[in-house]
Nucleic acid binder design. Sequence first.
DNA 1: GCCGTTTTCGGCCCGACTGTTTTCAGTCG
Length: 571
Amino acid sequence: MTNPQIAAALEELAVLYQLDGADRYRVLAYVNSARTIRSEGSSVEEMAKNGTVTSLPGVGKTLEEKIIALVETGEIPAAAKLKEKLPAGLIEMNRIPGLGPKTVRRLHDELDVSTLDELKAAAEAHEVSAMKGLGPKQEANIVEGIERLQAEPEGPERKRLDEILPIAEELVEILREHASCEEAEIAGSVRRLTDTCKDVDLIATSESPKELATHIAGGKPVASAGKPSETGVRLETHTGVGVDVRIVEPDAFGNLLQHFTGSAAHNERLRAIAVKEGLHVSENGVLDDKTGKTDLFKTEKEVYKRLGYDYIEPELREQRGELEAARDGKLPKLISRQDIKGDLHCHTTLSDGHDTLEEMAEAAQELGYEYLAITDHSASHGFGDHVTPDRLWQRIEEVSRYNEGNAKSKKNFRLLAGSEVNIGTKGELDYEDDLLDALDWVIASIHTSFSKDEKKMTSRMIAAIENPLVDCIGHPTGRLLNKRDPYPLNIGEAISAAFESGTLFEINSNPQRRDLNDIHARMAADAGVGIVINTDAHRAETLSYINYGIATARRAWLGPDQVLNTGEWWK
DNA sequence: GCCGTTTTCGGCCCGACTGTTTTCAGTCG
């Protein structure tokens, strides 16, 4: 059972407890433990079985028991029991925006409704607005919410960062162009550069906030807008992205930016620690119990300093140890775009790429790189764009001639002859050893047979890792964001094997992949596995995807020393 | 349900908004 599956089961139990009227802090304990488990790199199932799961923060004796029952029997007894008592429809009702567990429970008890259809019928018969504390607006909201839920049962999909970032940047420019706008920034998960984002948070300072809110509401990308107010406005773009714009007075810009950048978990921990020191942190400032005074700060750096921390980069604010590190002066120096000296994974017209070897080389030099590995697909790629051994031998010659030409003109740039070879179902590669040996650089990737079980996939992967001719594993888990789950793989075992054999792992920068992800990349680097950040570009323009890979590396706490293509070509 | 330099019980982050109410509970981020 994967960590996200365990987390989902605990979240469901939290909702069930909530509907059952449990103490809110008990509910919170389940929500928090689910969050911890979701961002844990090691297998929580294994931790539960070997008795170490209580080492996770927020997981105690009771949760340990429940997790063990879950991984052994597939369900948590307490959840099964509550499900007998509370119809499944109640969990669905809880997903109606604006409707929480308290109201859902009252609707069930007082109107005897157990399904979405029954609730909708009751609302349409105006039974809801007849209840104490509920009125016509709630009733209309319920009908609308049910219709939306039935049309789109999964709820709105989170957008990938590359789909949402350009919109956020366009909107923040529209804020900045207004005369009354002093400062405007992207906040929220977009600023933390997460893989996917639910919506866009923008913050700004202005002496005429309502005017600024009205201005952004009339922006070109905006399809609809709520009522602009003194504190901001809520928008929806033509592409269906929700946008929250928050505006405050200029003096509190640092507090506001810190607050709305999140993550929620980071801020909750930050505030909990502050309370012990008599400080209360919010978007409106830092209140000191001793003096009764609230301090406002123009920059985030000052906010963190006031609370006793070094400045924490947004990508690190995920409640993964960054607060402790910032207090002890032990935050890592993160990698940045300027550190990257070359790209070690791209495709040309030889296989399925759009541009020629020369065009890719040209683009790499424009990015200031010193080297670029040409890694077209291998002999069994299929789709009519496989590369035969003969053709790859020729390609090695072409690369060599290109480099000779460059040497004459004294350019500090070279191409590397490489390949992205397929890992077969038993871990075998699809070129002969002498050809692989003649290449400068070999990436091995899994492109077929994703549905084998974890044991088979792991041993297949480890066979490739242990092959001395393999330099690097490409997109190691095979996921496609919002499209395809990672194949089953024991990442911990793969990391150990890679460390033993000196094989590198790739962070694939394609924004649909970002694979390794932040959690696994941090795990691999902590275990001493070398990381390379590649784009897997299939055309010259997409060499710029490197920024997404760097974002993942930063979220993984990586510095330039842990990423090999920050130095000159080493082989 | 978890946790501990306010320790084994009594706390547990913060504020805005909404819809319903005349002071607030519930929901959300």
